[in-house]
Computed example of a mutant assay.
Amino acid sequence: MPLAVVPTPIGNLEDITLRALRYLREADLVACEDSRRTGRLLAHYEIKKTLVSYHEHNEERLAMDLAERAKTERVALVSDAGTPLVSDPGYRLVAACIEAGVKVEVLPGPSALVTALAVSGLPSDAFTFLGFLPRKGRERTEILSRIAGEESTFVVYESPHRIGKTLAELPPGARVAVCRELTKLHEEVYRGTAVEAAEHFEEGVKGEIVLVVRGGAANVAGSLEDAVGRAREYVAGGESPSRAAARAAREAGFKKGEVYDRVAKG
């Protein structure tokens, strides 16, 4: 019997394939992160199955047992949302099945990573997926430095409580797409510079977030001196200092106050 890795919707319950539903109906047991969440999905499609809780805290202990069961039973692996193994449990089970000689079938399906990348409007021919950023420390600093310096598109998962902090630590002019609640009722995709996105979400945000960033110095539109010089040109052309500073700051990826203070001093 094969182990079936079955993607589930990342939000909209209609985003599940006919093949995925067939595998879930034919499974003898379903290994899932949260039985309540998976139970709601199965109930929606009138599927009744034995559920086995399989998550990051017990996957090392259960992987070999499930691999043995997969020799004689149809085992389906799902995550709470999207494709298993992508920042979700499953690697140890797949590895255990391969080691035990159990065939592994992976069904194509929903992925927040791919959905965000496609909708971002940023180059997608080559990209780096970083999962969830470390909350603090040297590793976080090194990753953010890499994003700032490497000409590539980066995709990260971020908490709504930390998205503001992360945006503020990116190069101000870096092009970003903040993808929130993908496929759900309140889906939002904000595209702009990091500093613009930080201002847009400064009052807080809710929901699941995928952040897509175009890294590299080429994406920083200019230095603060360039922005100030541009604002002074706009003032000379008849714009008010406040409006000129806001326009130049937006174009160069800085906060309005940083530019306005310099322009107002003359």
Rank of each mutant, 00 (worst) to 15 (best):
V119Y: 06
P123M: 11
D125Y: 07
A118R: 07
H200S: 03
P110V: 12
L182E: 06
R138V: 14
V213Q: 10
V156P: 00
R180T: 09
V195K: 03
K165P: 00
E150S: 13
F154S: 04
V102K: 00
H161Q: 13
V106D: 02
L211H: 04
A100K: 14
K136F: 02
G101W: 02
R162Q: 05
E196Q: 15
R162V: 08
H186L: 13
G164S: 06
A174E: 07
L167Q: 02
L185V: 14
R162E: 03
P108W: 02
C179Y: 10
V114T: 15
P160Y: 05
E199T: 10
V104I: 05
V106E: 05
Y190C: 00
P134C: 10
G149E: 15
S120A: 14
L170H: 07
C179A: 14
I163N: 04
A118F: 02
V189T: 14
E181W: 06
L122N: 12
P172V: 09
L133E: 06
K206V: 07
A118W: 01
A126S: 15
R140I: 10
E150T: 15
K184Q: 01
Y157G: 04
F154R: 09
G149T: 14
T141E: 15
E196C: 03
L130Q: 12
P123A: 12
P123F: 11
V106H: 00
G164N: 01
L113M: 13
G204Q: 10
V106N: 02
V119M: 12
I163D: 06
S124T: 15
T141M: 06
V114P: 00
V205Y: 04
T153E: 05
L182I: 11
L107C: 10
A100R: 13
A148S: 13
I143H: 10
V210N: 01
P123L: 09
A194Y: 08
P160A: 05
I147K: 11
E105R: 00
A116Q: 02
K136D: 10
I209S: 03
F132K: 12
H200T: 10
T193L: 03
L117W: 02
A197L: 03
I209V: 09
E196H: 04
G192V: 03
V189F: 12
V102M: 01
R140P: 08
F129W: 08
S120F: 07
L130C: 04
K165N: 10
A197F: 08
R138I: 12
A198P: 00
F201E: 01
V155K: 00
E151M: 01
G121C: 11
F132D: 13
E202Q: 09
G149C: 03
G109R: 09
P134T: 11
E99D: 14
S145D: 15
R140F: 07
V189L: 07
V195H: 02
R180V: 13
L185N: 12
V156T: 14
A174K: 01
G121T: 06
E142Q: 15
G207Y: 01
V119K: 09
P110I: 07
E169D: 14
V119C: 04
A116N: 02
L107P: 06
V119H: 05
A174D: 01
F154T: 08
L167E: 06
G173P: 04
P160G: 08
S159C: 09
L167G: 02
E150V: 15
L133P: 05
L211Y: 02
V178C: 08
E208H: 05
